[in-house]
Each structure stands twice: as structure tokens, then as C-alpha cells.
Write a protein that binds this DNA or RNA. Structure first.
Length: 868
RNA sequence: GCCCGAGUGGCGGAAUGGUAGACGCAGCGGAUUCAAAAUCCGCCGCCGUAAGGCGUGGGGGUUCGAGUCCCCCCUCGGGCACCA
């Protein structure tokens, strides 16, 4: 007997789509366009289930929109620069370029069997010279437009390997290879002026209606606009030229509770003191022996050093405060100096307790206002508190009121001025690494930093490099650095920094609109295809990648590479969850964990030895924990449609989904069942004279259906209900509920005793609804039931509103909010009749026990609640 | 440490403030089979013989009615600017 055979079906239809050119994106002025983009993958060499999930979701949207008549752009490329390629070269030899391109080839081969509706003619990798050369051209335009500059910034420095480390290469403050204590070191580096756009990037979030609120909130917090007071404390007997310390504070209302002034170890004053005082030098050096990440600084023990210097309080010149150098103050934020008010900031309080500094309350809670002891009193700024020493506002006022008044007061008295600051820092793009886009500038002894001429682009990475020693291969290459100054022609040296890989991914969406253009973009193409209508990717990119992309689109607009409308490049964003799996674990003789692959475990025991394994609840799939399932194996055993169906079925797309073998098998069984049902119908048709006999048959309609006993009409109603529900599910990213509705409809169809024509119609409708999710099976069914052409080209089915209306509804009856009974009533029965019926219900009569109801709530079509 | 999420049966999950547990998995019972696999049909939150009671991480609150809204707490996950 014939069976569902994905290994035959799937390649067959993939070939059919290819020869049909079904997925080629066509610029068609007569049709609306739809641009679906999933975040492009890093070419690690193997696709994983996360990719399958991500790209299947995008594919559902792309195929659905295509069926709805849109001209769809659904491209794929590779985020191909980055550290792993260099790490591989260091560990296993070989060249990052070879490693990367061979990974790309492997991953493309693994991806293609998924049957994604991708226009592969637009594929590119960010490490293609054609791509990064255009990126260099844009860098020059940005430079010209004043969007790029150089300044000093700190990096993680490994003093043994003599190399810069990424944050992820620092483990517990030590270099991952050398084990040496990492130091902070300053280098002159290239920056994009993203901070010029702080206000714009913040304000424009309000217009992103189809972005998740949580992502917008994260970006708002990241940009971090604050209103505060910038003011100076005058120094007493300060050395060198320092006579004041500028501080920025968001709580000027607590100025009277100040007990110390703190400066960053990188503050100019600290630098100056360092030169004269070995103790200061030692402390600052110690502070610099810390990683550069904010997380590390925050988690580190708060420490300070009394410089011995004193400042005067602006309100009372006899009031002196000590000046500390403190390890938790960032030079990058505000002015690199603060005043500490221990009573109303926990970090300041901890610091004050540690160094024996005074703690004086400036306000207390209205009720039982107790002075601060071990916990700083930090109420919401909107809460009213009692001020002990207000200086320009009422004794009872909110923090907000006090802050406004304090700024006004300070401005009037010449103590400082109100300013708006942002937490967002400029984007440092310099990387002291080989496998990235070279920054196209030249250092000339006479002319200084000179941009490379556009006609000399791309500045190509040299191929002859080695990774047998740490550090930047571009730096130690014998000849690559040598060049001539584009301005004066004298011998000069190339910049050896390459760009952050976030630069590569900040404009790839624009390049997909014209991937082979001789300029970064082609305005006519960008005008048609931009913006990305639906962007899909992981929540881990909520801040950096998306913020950088938003900045880049603006910068590209300013430099003439994108139209005005593309300044905000992603109209809608969806962030999908991870794919997780249980972890299987045994212990070796030393009690160390030994992880096992899912395929080596059965029934909680190792297949080989029968040793029981500990099962750790689901976690993100990772190689080190061996809780990975290779999509290639799944596709080989069950087919791509099963992998796709399962990835969509079990969890809402924004949440994590757990991969289970049982779930995958269930998906496979279901698709087999769908195939058998369709095949049964096809065989019946064969026996009844072939497809032609059913082609002309008028499908049952709402009026004429009574004659067949209602089965045809019932099936039709169910189909149209399903069309409606599945469509709603796809539109709202509720793929799992679309799948559930299709399961339900399969059951209905399997049990239906409707006519053959009606069942054929139902099965074909089902195939169409399944097509975005399981495209190969859908084509197969469509074909066997005599559908015309490819289902991928067929228009999306429309639900007939007349078939969606139900005549009667079942209403629950509650007594005091608890369901006690239900009644079946005509859909539009009026309220008072519903109330009468409800009060006559046995359960209600019993509950009332002869008394009158206190209240009856009737929500027509929903519920009746009787309060007794 | 800071910012952002998520917690519902044995499991994955469903549910415009209106019948909690749709749909699927597992489990149980039955049909088919010499037998098994596959397939098909039915049952299936917990306690209880039943009547009934209890149930959406925990504790409060708003409401005729709360998984859903508000406050506090717990646990888990993501991000923290050089991982991508």
C-alpha cells in the first residue's frame, strides 16, 4: 500500500519550485511588495534547530504573503566575519577564509533541504570583498558626513599574549588562553557618532507600533535619557590646574545630603594625582586590572581611595567634602565624577559605611519617617516625602517636584545648570583583529589620518597571514601596511584595525534589495523593497544589533544610500524563543559531569551500558552540554516537513520550545495521517471515474446543502472556520494555534461522511492552509487531488462570512461567579429573555432557595452570572 | 549589581476580564491482528465511592466574575556596549 514518503516527495517539489522560479523576488510595480527577513546566520558550519525554527517562521510568513498576492522578497546571507574563524585557525590551523567559505557551503547544503522559499540568487556573505568593499565606501561617506571620529577608549589587554581580548575571552578577570590577569588599556580607536541620534532613536521608538513593547522598553532604557544638574565643586588647594570638579547628578534635591565626591580612576584629576602619588597610582592601576564590561564593574566590590583633597559644598563654603577615587565610577558617563548621597543611594551608602563617611537624611517617609540605617531610602520619584532641609520647595513634596525646584534654584544661584544626558555611548567599531572589514584609512606622517580613495576600494584583506602567534596578523604582515598617502603620495601606513562585525549586520537588509549593485545600494530597488515588512530573530539582539541597524539606516539616509522612509528600517519585529532540550548527565569516578547526546539515551538509561542518567530540565541547546539535535538527522529520518511542523506546533513562537523525540514522531505521524486521508480521497476519485468527474461538480453551498443531510454543509462550515482561524493565527504569529486548528480539522475531515466532492474540496483547502508550514506535503496533496499548478502559486483561500455564523450558542450560567449550568440559546436572544431562562434553571433555583437574586449580570453571547 | 521577560495537568501548551486545561504527547481501555508493529475508536487536572471541594509559582488587592488588571515576593531565562 502507498505510504507517505518524504524522501521522494520533498526533493521532487523543491526541483519543481526551482525550475518554476517560484521564489525569485521580482520588482513588480503593479503588486504590493512584502519583505520578510530573518536574522542571517553566523556560518558556524552546522545548522541547528534554532535556525530551523527561525527560518521556518519566516518561511510561513513569506509563503503566506506570496499567496495573498504580494511580491515577496525573502533572502538569505551569511554574517561571516568574526572571531570564531580566527579561533579555528589558531586551534586547527588553516585560514579563516577557507574555514568560513567551506562552512557556508556546508550550511547552505543543510539549509536547502528545508524547502525554504528563499531567493538564493541574492545570497552573499559579509566577508565577500563585493560586500565589505561597499561597506568601506559607506565608511568613507560617513567620515565625510562627520559621523565618524577617533578617540581613546579602553580595551581588555592580555599582558602575556600581548593582545586585545573580547569580553567573552575574559574569564574571572583572566585571559582565556594565557590565564594572565587582564588589564584595561587605552587605545586610539574609531567611533560612530550614534550619540548624535540619541533623541531621534528614542523618540522614533514611539512610532514602531509593530515592535514588541519589551524590546522598545529595553532600547529606551539603554538610550537612558535623564534630566539632571551639572555643577562644579570647587577644590581646595588642588594641585596642577584643577580648581573644580564637574559632577552630573540626577538627584540635585539630595545635594544637602552629600558626604563625598567621587571621581573615576580615568578622570583627568586622578590621572594627574597618579603622577605624583604612588599610592594613587597603585590604586588606579588596580582599578585598571579589571575587565571593561559594565557587568564586571557593577559586580566588583565597591572600593575607593581618599585623595586627601577636599571640595567646598556650593551652599555653604565652610562645609568641606572629601574627594575619593572610586572603582565604580565610569569615565564614559556624565562627567566621570559624582557626589555621593549615602542616605538615598544604596551604593553610596555601602561606600560611606565602608569608609566611615557621614550619612545624613534629606527626606523621610511621610509615615513613621525613620532615619536611614543599613538600607538607603529610595522611594519612587513620584512619591510624596517629608523633606528635612528643603532649599526651594515645600516640606512635603515628591522627588520630581524637588528635583525641578532644585535645578531652578541652582541655576538662579549660579551653582550649575540643568542638562539632559543620555546613557548611550558612541559606538566603538575598532577591532584589533584580522577577520573583519578593514577600516579604509591611511596614516601619513605629514597629512595625518587620510581616507583611502574610493577608486582604491576595496581595501582587501591579505590572504598570506598566519595565526601561530597572538595579536593582529595585519599588524605584523611584512608588506600589507605599506601604501602611499592618497593625499600627498608619500609612503604611508594602512590602518590595521578592522570593523566590529555589528557593522556588517547593520545594513545587510539594505544590500539584499540590490545585492550585486556597484554601489552600496541601488536607490530604485531600495525605494521599492524597503522597508523590511517583517523582521524575525532572537531576543538576544533586542538592543545592540537593532539599535545599530536603526542608526545605520539613518546614517545611510544622510549619506544618500537609503530613502527617507527607510530611516526606520524594520516596520515589524518579531522575537522568537530558543529551542531547548533536556540534558543527560552521568558522573565519572571523580564526580565530574559527563554529558550524553540524546540519541545515546533511551528510557532514562544509556543505550550502551544501561547506566541510568540524570535528566536536567531543558536548556538552550549547546555543544558543551551535548543536548543538541542535528536537524540533518531529523530531516533524514522524518523529512523537512516534519521538522518544520513540529517547530511550529508545540509552543508559541515568542517562547522557548523544547525539542522532544516524542513530539517529532507525533508530528511525523500526523503528516502521515493527513497524507493517507488525501490519498484515500484520491483513490475514491480514481474508482469513481477520475478527477474529471469531480472537476465540474458544483461544491455544496449554504442553501443547497440541506439535501445531503447536512454533512457537506457541516464540513464546509468547518473548513471555512478553519480557514478563518488558521489565517488569524498566521497573521498574529500564533503559528501554534494555527497548527492546533489544523489538527482539529483533520479529525473533522477523517470522521466526515460528506460526499466525495465535499471531502475533496476540504482536503484541498487543508493542503492550502498547510502549505506555508509543510509546503512539500501540501504540493503532493494538491497534485494528487487534481489541483491546478503549484499550490505555492495558488491564491490564499478566503473564508465565507456566511459560513462562519453560528445560529445558537451555549451560554454558561454562573452562581456567584462559579459555573453551575449551561443553556443553549439562539445567538441573538435578548438580555431579559436570557435572564428569565437563567433564573428558571434548576441549579439557579436551587441556589436561590426561594429568595430573590441580589444581582443578575447578563453578557449576551458570553455568560449569565446570578449573584445570590 | 542594573535593565527586560517567563512561570497553567505527568509533559508541551490553549484561553478579547466571562465555562481554565482547546490541540498534541505520555498514560489507560477497546477494535483490528495467529502475534506484533502500524492504524482506528474511547477515556484522561487533583482530592473524593459520591455529593461536592480544590486548582493557573507564593502572598495580598480591584471586580458580579481574575490565568488575564494592580502591589509585594520567589524561581528560571535573556541583555549589559569586543560572542554573534
Amino acid at each position: 500500500m502507498a505510504r507517505y514518503t518524504p524522501p521522494e516527495i520533498e526533493p521532487k517539489w523543491q526541483k519543481a519550485w526551482e525550475s518554476d522560479g517560484t521564489f525569485l523576488a521580482q520588482r513588480d510595480p503593479d503588486r504590493p511588495k512584502y519583505y520578510v527577513l530573518e536574522m542571517f546566520p553566523y556560518p558556524s558550519g552546522r545548522i541547528h534547530m534554532g535556525h530551523v525554527r527561525n527560518y521556518t517562521m519566516g518561511d510561513v510568513v513569506a509563503r503566506y504573503k506570496s499567496s495573498c498576492g504580494f511580491s515577496v522578497l525573502h533572502p538569505m546571507g551569511w554574517d561571516a566575519f568574526g572571531m570564531p574563524a580566527e579561533n579555528a585557525a589558531m586551534e586547527r590551523g588553516g585560514h579563516p577564509k577557507d574555514w568560513t567559505y567551506s562552512n557556508i557551503a556546508d550550511m547552505r547544503d543543510q539549509l536547502k533541504p528545508l524547502g525554504l522559499s528563499i531567493d538564493w540568487t541574492r545570497e552573499f556573505a559579509t566577508c565577500d570583498p563585493e560586500y565589505y568593499g561597499q561597506q568601506q565606501a559607506m565608511f568613507l561617506d560617513f567620515l565625510d558626513a562627520g559621523l565618524v571620529y577617533r578617540k581613546n577608549a579602553v580595551v581588555n589587554w592580555d599582558p602575556v599574549d600581548m593582545t586585545v581580548l573580547a569580553n567573552e575571552q575574559v574569564e574571572d578577570g583572566r585571559g582565556w588562553r594565557s590565564g594572565a590577569l587582564v588589564e584595561r588599556r587605552e587605545l586610539t580607536q574609531w567611533f560612530f557618532k550614534i550619540s548624535d541620534f540619541s533623541e531621534d532613536l528614542l523618540g522614533a521608538l514611539d512610532g514602531l507600533d509593530n515592535w514588541p513593547e519589551k524590546v522598545k522598553l529595553m532600547q529606551r532604557n539603554w538610550i537612558g535619557r535623564s534630566r539632571g544638574l551639572q555643577m562644579a565643586f570647587s577644590l581646595i588647594d588642588a594641585p596642577h590646574d584643577f580648581d573644580r570638579i564637574e559632577v552630573y547628578t540626577t538627584r540635585p534635591d539630595t545635594l544637602r545630603g552629600a558626604s563625598f565626591v567621587g571621581i573615576s580612576p580615568d578622570h583627568p584629576l586622578a590621572r594627574a594625582l597618579e603622577r605624583d602619588d604612588p599610592k594613587v597610582a597603585e590604586f588606579c592601576a588596580e582599578c585598571r586590572r579589571m575587565g571593561t564590561s559594565e557587568e564586571e564593574l557593577e559586580k566588583a566590590e565597591k572600593r575607593g581611595l581618599d585623595t586627601g583633597l577636599r571640595v567646598r559644598h556650593p551652599f555653604d563654603t565652610s562645609w568641606e567634602l572629601p574627594v575619593y577615587i572610586a572603582n565604580f565610577i565610569l569615565m564614559d558617563y556624565g562627567t566621570g565624577a559624582i557626589f555621593g548621597c549615602p542616605a538615598h543611594d544604596q551604593r553610596d551608602l555601602d561606600f560611606a559605611r565602608k569608609y566611615g563617611l557621614p550619612v545624613s537624611d534629606t527626606f523621610v517617609a511621610l509615615e513613621n519617617g525613620q532615619p536611614v540605617t543599613n538600607e538607603a531610602f529610595v522611594p519612587p520619584k513620584t512619591e510624596k516625602v517629608r523633606w528635612l532641609r528643603p532649599y526651594a520647595w515645600d516640606e512635603i513634596a515628591t522627588g520630581e517636584q524637588a528635583i525641578d525646584a532644585a535645578i531652578r534654584f541652582c541655576e538662579e544661584n549660579g551653582v550649575g545648570h540643568g542638562v539632559t544626558k543620555y546613557r548611550l555611548r558612541d559606538w566603538g567599531i575598532s577591532r584589533q583583529r584580522y577577520w573583519g572589514c578593514p577600516i579604509p584609512v591611511v596614516h601619513c606622517a605629514d597629512c595625518g589620518v587620510v581616507p583611502e580613495k574610493k577608486e582604491n576600494l576595496p581595501v582587501l584583506l591579505p590572504d598570506d597571514v598566519t595565526f601561530d602567534q597572538p595579536g593582529n596578523p595585519l599588524d605584523r604582515h611584512p608588506t600589507w601596511r605599506d601604501c602611499t598617502c592618497p593625499q600627498c603620495g608619500a609612503p604611508a601606513r594602512r590602518e590595521t584595525d578592522t570593523m566590529d562585525t555589528f557593522v556588517d549586520s547593520s545594513w545587510y537588509y539594505a544590500r539584499f534589495t540590490a545585492p550585486h549593485a556597484a554601489t552600496p545600494t541601488d536607490m530604485a530597488e531600495a525605494e521599492y523593497w524597503m522597508n523590511v515588512d517583517q523582521y524575525i530573530g532572537g531576543i538576544e539582539h533586542a538592543i545592540l544589533h537593532l539599535l545599530y541597524s536603526r542608526f545605520f539606516a539613518r546614517a545611510m539616509h544622510i549619506t544618500g544610500h537609503l530613502p527617507e522612509k527607510a530611516r526606520e528600517p524594520f516596520d515589524a519585529l518579531f522575537t522568537q524563543g530558543m529551542v531547548t532540550h533536556e540534558i543527560y548527565l552521568t558522573r565519572d569516578e571523580n564526580g565530574r559531569p559527563v554529558y550524553h547526546l540524546p540519541e545515546d539515551v533511551e528510557g532514562g538509561k544509556l543505550k550502551t551500558t544501561g547506566e541510568p542518567v540524570d535528566i536536567i530540565p531543558s536548556a538552550k541547546m549547546s555543544k558543551s552540554k551535548k543536548n543538541v539535535v542535528d536537524p540533518v538527522n531529523i530531516i533524514e529520518s522524518f523529512g523537512a516537513d516534519t521538522a518544520r511542523w513540529f517547530m511550529l506546533s508545540d509552543s508559541p513562537p515568542e517562547r522557548d520550545v523544547e525539542w522532544t523525540a516524542a513530539g517529532a514522531e507525533a508530528a511525523y505521524k500526523h503528516l502521515g495521517r493527513v497524507w493517507r486521508i488525501a490519498n484515500g480521497i484520491a483513490e475514491e476519485m480514481e474508482q469513481g471515474g477520475g478527477i474529471a468527474a469531480y472537476e465540474s461538480e458544483a461544491p455544496a453551498n449554504a442553501k443547497g446543502a440541506a439535501a445531503d443531510g447536512g454533512d457537506d454543509l457541516a464540513l464546509r462550515r468547518a473548513l471555512h472556520r478553519t480557514v478563518h482561524d488558521v489565517t488569524m493565527g498566521i497573521e498574529s504569529f500564533g503559528f501554534n494555534s494555527s497548527v492546533a486548528k489544523l489538527y482539529a480539522f483533520t479529525n473533522t475531515l477523517a470522521k466526515s461522511s460528506a460526499s466525495l466532492a465535499a471531502r475533496r474540496e476540504a482536503a484541498m483547502g487543508m493542503a492550502q492552509l498547510m502549505a506555508p508550514m509543510t509546503p512539500h506535503l501540501a504540493e503532493e496533496i494538491w497534485d494528487m487531488l487534481g489541483g491546478q499548478g503549484l499550490v505555492a502559486r495558488a491564491p490564499w483561500p478566503q473564508a465565507d462570512p456566511a459560513l462562519l455564523v453560528e445560529d445558537t450558542v451555549v451560554l454558561p450560567i454562573q452562581v456567584n461567579g462559579k459555573r453551575r449550568s449551561e443553556i443553549e440559546v439562539p445567538k441573538d436572544m435578548p438580555k431579559d429573555e436570557l435572564e428569565k431562562l437563567a433564573l428558571a434553571d434548576d441549579a439557579v433555583v436551587k441556589a436561590l432557595a426561594g429568595g430573590a437574586p441580589k444581582k443578575v449580570i447578563v453578557v449576551p453571547g458570553r455568560i449569565v452570572n446570578v449573584v445570590v
